[in-house]
Design a protein around this nucleic acid. Structure first.
Length: 139
DNA sequence: GCCAACGTTGGC
DNA sequence: GCCAACGTTGGC
């Protein structure tokens, strides 16, 4: 199963907001980047990803799971863009900061480092395991 | 608050 | 269809 990373500014949509949505989850709308959109179209129910706080915090703070596959965004007249629905699964015992990720040579190839502006990005199995370990989660 | 990197727009 | 100009994102 593929893994992902979702960025959100905590001032707009934070991890706590996500947790408050519970099992129903949130429609991850507002993405208007073709590559991020493509990534979401490739997702399947049950796939997990990291929840990352950009700007403030700059850290991976939790794990989310896809509960519904990609659906078109009603606010996009052309129907080009859409989103998946995500629910919070587990919080990291300790957040993994961008500085830590950058400091680790094994994580130097992460999209988060290479293309910091992409809002929905793939994470490799190795990176997934590494960041989970740094965050204090079980493998 | 600044600025680099990237994506998008629009003129040709 | 190309590419310069512009706007936005996000780290610092």
């Amino acid at each position: 199963m593929a893994h992902w990373l979702y960025k959100s500014e905590p001032g707009v949509w934070s991890w706590d907001d996500q947790v408050a949505k519970g099992e129903a989850g949130t429609y991850w709308d507002g993405v208007r980047n073709p590559l991020a959109n493509k990534n979401m179209k490739a997702m399947e129910v049950g796939e997990r990803g990291f929840f990352y706080h950009s700007n403030e915090g700059k850290a991976v703070v939790g794990v989310v799971e896809v509960v519904a596959t990609w659906a078109p965004d009603p606010n996009d007249a052309k129907g080009t863009y859409g989103a998946v629905t995500l629910k919070a699964v587990e919080k990291l015992p300790r957040p993994v900061t961008l500085a830590e990720i950058k400091a680790d040579p094994r994580l130097a190839e992460m999209v988060l480092v290479k293309n910091s502006r992409l809002s929905v990005q793939p994470v490799t199995d190795e990176e997934w395991a590494m960041v989970r370990a740094l965050g204090g989660l079980e493998p």
